[in-house]
């Protein structure tokens, strides 16, 4: 059985909530029923057939071709199966997802993986601000699962992150893992200013020798901690860059503790070149 495919026919006039285009909401529905599913927009409700042509059947494997940043909340609440989006996605892709896989073959706008609790999000392009964070006003960001961004991420990646793993293979903007509550973030590229601002707990691993850390992070020396080794081993499957970082970590990483303005139980590791 071939996966269910949505092919974009016309770009919507504004932002559309695309959260209905995912396995759980589509399973067991006829093509006609799917075509009539509502897509909430500003002051009107579109239906799937207004924007997409459908192919295939298997709702456990959904593909959306030609999506763009007008589609928000794609894969939000995903609870199993696979959703592949070819083209870019709007804000809040994979928000609150619990299980399954969301592949974004292209760039993601802000808040990808906001509040996600499980599963895997794999973004092949760049991500906007607040990757793995939370909605404005909500207290806890990403709380489980793995968010992998193969390109760069914007500001505030991992803001208020509470659990789970965030991997950015490119560079991150400013305020990386601001207000982090716990969890693990690994950044293989350059890092912008103020990493770890108001971080309470959690682990940020950087590969940016000589990067400037806040004065409310204190140097803790070079350590080769078993927990970090285990952690990096467990992440090695996420690509050669991560595996290479893990190999270089053997023998120790420079460790900083902070943010002392917020209790100071977070840790930032920096690999030496």
């Amino acid at each position: 059985m071939t996966g269910l495919t949505f092919e974009l026919r016309s770009v919507p006039p504004g932002i559309v909530d695309g959260s209905v285009l995912q396995p759980a909401a589509l399973a067991g529905k006829s093509r006609a029923e799917i075509e009539r599913l509502p897509l909430a927009a500003w002051n009107e409700t579109l239906v799937v057939a207004d924007l997409f042509a459908l192919k295939g059947r298997d709702a456990q494997h959904v593909t959306i071709h030609g999506a763009c940043d007008r589609f928000e909340r794609l894969g939000a609440g995903l609870d199993g199966g696979t959703l592949t989006v070819v083209g870019g996605v709007g804000r809040y892709a994979g928000e609150g997802m619990r299980r399954g896989t969301l592949i974004i073959d292209g760039p993601a706008a802000s808040h990808v993986g906001a509040g996600m609790r499980g599963g895997l999000i794999d973004v092949t392009g760049d991500a906007g601000d607040f990757a793995g964070s939370a909605r404005p006003g909500a207290m806890a960001g990403m709380a489980g699962g793995t968010l992998r961004i193969r390109g760069d991420a914007g500001d505030r990646a991992g803001d208020r992150m509470r659990r789970g793993t965030l991997i950015v293979e490119g560079a991150v903007g400013g305020w990386c893992v601001s207000r982090m509550i716990a969890g693990t973030a690994l950044v293989l590229g350059a890092v912008g200013p103020h990493p770890g601002h108001q971080m309470r707990r959690g682990t940020l691993l950087l590969d940016a020798p000589g990067c400037e850390l806040l004065p409310t992070f204190n140097p803790n020396g070079r350590h080769d901690l078993l927990a970090i080794r285990l952690l990096l081993d467990s992440l090695a499957a996420h690509g050669p860059g991560v595996a290479d970082y893990g190999r270089r970590a053997i023998g120790g990483l420079d460790r900083w503790l902070g943010d002392l303005a917020a209790g100071g139980q977070g840790e930032i590791f920096v690999a030496r070149s």
Binding site: H194, T216, N218, D259, L260, A261, A262, G264
Partner: peptide, 15 residues
Amino acid sequence: VLIGMLTAMVDDRPV
């Protein structure tokens, strides 16, 4: 950064 430093200092953290 300055606010953070003041906070850590009033909170008796070893900054």
